[in-house]
Design a protein around this nucleic acid. Structure first.
Length: 490
RNA sequence: GGGGGUGUAGCUCAGUGGUAGAGCACCUGCCUUUUAAGCAGGGAGUCGAAGGUUCAAUCCCUUCCACCCUCACCA
């Protein structure tokens, strides 16, 4: 029929949402509109078609009557399938049943769809297909597309907030000769020209603190991080954090800022301070609870670990049913008991503070207790949403912490942090007292959009490779040739 | 890695030891304001993969693959 199934462009005058929002005016003035979109439904009634056309923002019904478009175009429309993308021109009116509709006078095929859409009513529910071929998921499931719009809005709101409070958004290396800033196994790669091993970053911390040394007061980064660890509902190998560093402030200051930020984001997104997450209702309105790790352990277990020796602490932990070969110091024992007895009970936003020094190699020692650090983690709905400390800025102390980590690594701890000489050098030039914070963006978005899996807030989550998901090129070409032949016949 | 579950048409799902079914989608016909339009007809499947048992396996057995849940590690 000489129809190009893949033309170059279509001059549209309105997005569908614009047609709907100014419908009365368009109708009164008999304005000709040109819209485009994907055909989601077709209803044929003899010499008349009704179809639902959807673009990025909205859906509208179109009305194609043979007497309006002519015999030839009408037959073309008869060849269209669900999923095809068209542009059409016409005026608007309201049908007998009250639906706002575009009365089409002409239309053009813009893109032919070779694969059929998922069931128009049941949609696409198979999670494997949804994750592997997100484009189908996005076509078939409007609520999925909306969740990702929310993701962008959340990040934008955070960005606006931080920019408005004087934080400078910066970028630091993703590809690093040495990884650090968190306890995790890295992805390792290789630079050919330099012939050196390189690592994908697991955190931004050490680079951002170098910038504080360099004289920036407030910096932050939207961080893509990579951790070579297990994958499940809460973990994707590639994920997003925000890290921020604030000179001349301590962990209490940055906790207050984080609280203010989250309250602002929740309110901006939902217009209120409470959100629903699974079976929980989370209230961001009241001041967040602030409790020390040792106090919360004592509340739950009746045991005060604060003045116990390592041996006594381990014995107490054993009585509580907490036992592991990895509990090699007092700090690890306390953290393990806390995780076993306290963590699961933290539903409303709660700052848990003052972590043991052994598990906090980059945090400054607590001003009142050398066994602890000035560190907090924020928990919401039992999940860690953020981790922050008064940053360790004493290069001698930092070196000792690194050496301790080195011992752990030598003992087989694959997540211990390697010594970063240049970072020590940077600290020795003087880093002002600084508060630092990192929080997981994917988890925050899960929380704020009420999604149960991290895969529901990452467009293309990591999946195992499978033969089923791969179509041989030869098969694709054969199919294309076949379609071409079919088209030329028509 | 351990335990539990799932895998049948493009999509959503039934089903049986004897050559495979529905709805939607697709094709044909009827219907000029319908709306999950309707009515009539049609084509469509390596029943996840490979072995085994059996006269006969989509179904029973074994192994493998992918996905989901869960436990352990992690954000």
């Amino acid at each position: 029929m000489g129809i190009n199934p893949y033309p170059y462009k279509y001059d549209r005058t309105h997005q569908i949402s614009e047609v709907l929002s100014s419908f009365d005016t368009l109708a009164a003035q008999n304005t000709v509109v040109r819209v485009c979109g994907r055909i989601m439904l077709i209803r044929k009634m003899g010499k008349v078609f009704f179809a639902d056309l959807r673009d990025a923002g909205a859906k509208v019904q179109i009305y194609v009557k043979r007497d309006d478009v002519g015999e030839a175009l009408f037959e073309v429309f008869d060849l269209l399938d669900l999923g095809d993308i068209i542009g059409c021109e016409g005026t608007v009116f309201i049908t007998r049943t009250g639906e706002r509709t575009i009365k089409v006078t002409s239309f053009q095929l813009l893109t032919k769809a070779l694969h059929p859409l998922p069931d128009k009513h049941a949609g696409l529910t198979d999670v494997e297909t949804r994750y592997r071929r997100r484009y189908i998921d996005l076509i078939a499931n409007p609520e999925v597309r909306e969740a990702f719009v929310q993701r962008t809005r959340i990040i934008q709101t955070i960005r606006d907030f931080l920019n408005s409070t004087g934080f400078l958004e910066v970028e630091t290396p993703i590809l690093q000769p040495l990884y650090g800033g968190a306890s995790a196994r890295p992805f390792k790669t290789h630079h050919n020209t330099l012939d050196i091993p390189m690592f994908m970053r697991i955190a931004d911390e050490l680079y951002l603190k170098r910038l504080i040394v360099g004289g920036y007061d407030k910096v932050w980064e939207l961080c893509k991080d990579f951790r070579n660890e297990g994958m499940d509902r809460l973990h994707n190998p590639e994920f997003t954090m925000i890290e921020m560093y604030w000179a001349y402030a301590d962990y209490r200051d940055i906790a207050a800022l984080l609280e203010q930020l989250l309250r602002h984001v929740v309110f901006t997104l939902h217009g209120k301070h409470t959100i629903e997450f699974g079976e929980h209702s989370i209230d961001f309105g009241p001041p967040f609870r602030w409790v020390s790790m040792l106090d919360s352990v004592r509340e739950k277990t009746g045991v005060d670990f604060s003045n116990l020796s390592f041996e006594d602490a381990r014995a107490q932990a054993r009585k509580l049913g907490v036992e592991s070969a990895e509990l090699i110091n007092w700090g690890k024992v306390v953290a393990a008991v806390w995780e076993a007895k306290v963590e699961h009970s933290l539903i409303q936003p709660t700052f848990v503070c003052d972590f043991p020094v052994e598990i906090s190699p980059l945090a400054k020692k607590h001003r009142d207790n050398p066994r602890l650090t000035e560190r907090f983690e924020l928990f919401i709905a039992t999940q860690e949403m953020g981790n922050a400390f008064s940053e360790l800025n004493d290069p001698v102390d930092q070196l000792q912490r690194f050496l301790q980590q080195g011992k752990a690594m030598a003992a087989g701890d694959e997540e211990a942090q390697p010594l970063d000489d240049d970072f020590i050098t940077a600290l020795s030039y003087g880093m002002p007292p600084t508060a630092g914070l990192g929080f997981g963006i994917d988890r925050l978005i899960m929380l704020l959009t009420n999604q149960p899996s991290i895969r529901d807030v990452i467009f293309f989550p990591q999946m195992k490779e499978t033969k089923d998901g791969t179509v041989p090129v030869s098969q694709i070409l054969a199919q294309l040739a076949e379609e071409e032949q079919d088209a030329s016949k028509k």
